[in-house]
């Protein structure tokens, strides 16, 4: 562990709202618009945190706890998250299981907070969220299992630290398959195209946006910030697979990781501009496809 490891979670919390800004600017570029400022997400957070609150009479403390627990889970997840060559502040065997289950805890509370409103819209979103998660979670763990078997190590930081150019040239098919699988998971877990459309707030097709329909003010600020951090967390899992070559200098590695996340955000914007949302009934197939990619990668390690 070094200074960069300590710095990474702090940067993640501080810079995560930049990612939606980059994605939106990319989409605006593709659409030929000027688009919102790069720092729009920060302005939104600033505005939301200075607002009062309006709650439905139906809701209970669960509704208020949902955004907080979700945000706390993502912050805790940052503690075991490596970014490329920069190891996580905490690394131990099985830390990736904790990561997956922290995301699960956040999801559980988002879902029950949505059900707390008694709205059929939010119930629908909650139902879809748990359905997609059922397919996404095995895919994520199988992909990580492939990396673990490849690295012969059970800690996330060690798994990612070992991915040198030499390993890439030797295990190219495996890493490419897992990277493709993780990219699909990154899109679906963050409710981006082609699984969910972050722009449609009131349509029957939405998942994440509808679950947070009733949140406002400070709570919605937490929701938005947590969504940005989640982009960062899953993005780091994808970006870490592509090592820029070991520089040996921790801060340079960290900078390379940040650049990777920005490139990923631009790629997300490009995907979102070029792809339509797939039909809702096709989403499980997409996710199972991601799982199959990861499983194929894993099977390559058996011989």
């Amino acid at each position: 562990m070094n200074a960069a490891s300590i710095l990474h979670p702090v940067l993640a919390v501080a810079l995560a709202p930049l990612l939606p800004g980059v994605i939106n600017r990319t989409k605006a570029f593709f659409a030929g618009r000027r688009g919102p400022p790069l720092l729009q997400a920060y302005f939104d957070l600033w505005k939301l945190f200075r607002k009062g609150a309006t709650y439905s009479r139906t809701t209970t403390w669960i509704f208020r706890a949902g955004p907080i627990v979700n945000f706390a889970c993502l912050l805790a997840a940052l503690m075991v998250l490596p970014l490329g060559r920069v190891p996580a502040p905490l690394a131990f065997a099985g830390d990736f299981i904790l990561l997956a289950y922290l995301l699960g805890l956040g999801r559980f509370f988002t879902v029950v907070a949505a059900l707390d409103t008694g709205s059929s819209f939010e119930g629908m979103g909650a139902s879809r969220e748990v359905q997609f998660a059922t397919f996404a979670e095995p895919a994520l763990l199988v992909g990580l299992a492939a990396l673990a078997r490849q690295a012969q190590d059970l800690s996330l930081s060690a798994m990612y630290a070992g991915l040198s150019a030499a390993v890439w040239s030797q295990a190219l098919p495996l890493l490419a398959l897992v990277a493709a699988g993780f990219f699909v998971l990154y899109l679906s877990e963050n409710c981006r195209m082609p699984v969910d459309d972050p722009n449609t707030h009131l349509e029957l097709t939405m998942v994440h946006e509808v679950m947070v329909l009733d949140h406002g003010g400070v709570d919605f600020g937490f929701v938005q910030w947590a969504a940005a951090v989640k982009l960062w967390v899953l993005g780091a899992l994808v970006v870490g697979l592509f090592p820029p070559g070991a520089t040996g200098r921790p801060l340079a590695d960290l900078a390379a990781g940040l650049a990777g996340l920005l490139v990923l955000a631009i790629a997300t914007g490009a995907v979102e501009s070029c792809l339509a949302r797939v039909r809702l009934l096709r989403v499980p197939q997409l996710l199972v496809g991601a799982g199959v990619l990861c499983a194929l990668g894993l099977l390559l390690t058996f011989r």
């Binding site: 945190f49 309006t54 439905s56 009479r57 409103t117 709205s119 009131l202 329909l213 003010g217």
Partner: peptide, 18 residues
């Protein structure tokens, strides 16, 4: 959250039903 909401209006209403 408590600090941020202190001194600001907190109202109750119905669930948003479009």
């Amino acid at each position: 959250r408590r600090r941020l909401l202190a001194g600001r209006p907190v109202r109750e209403t119905v669930t948003w039903d479009c």
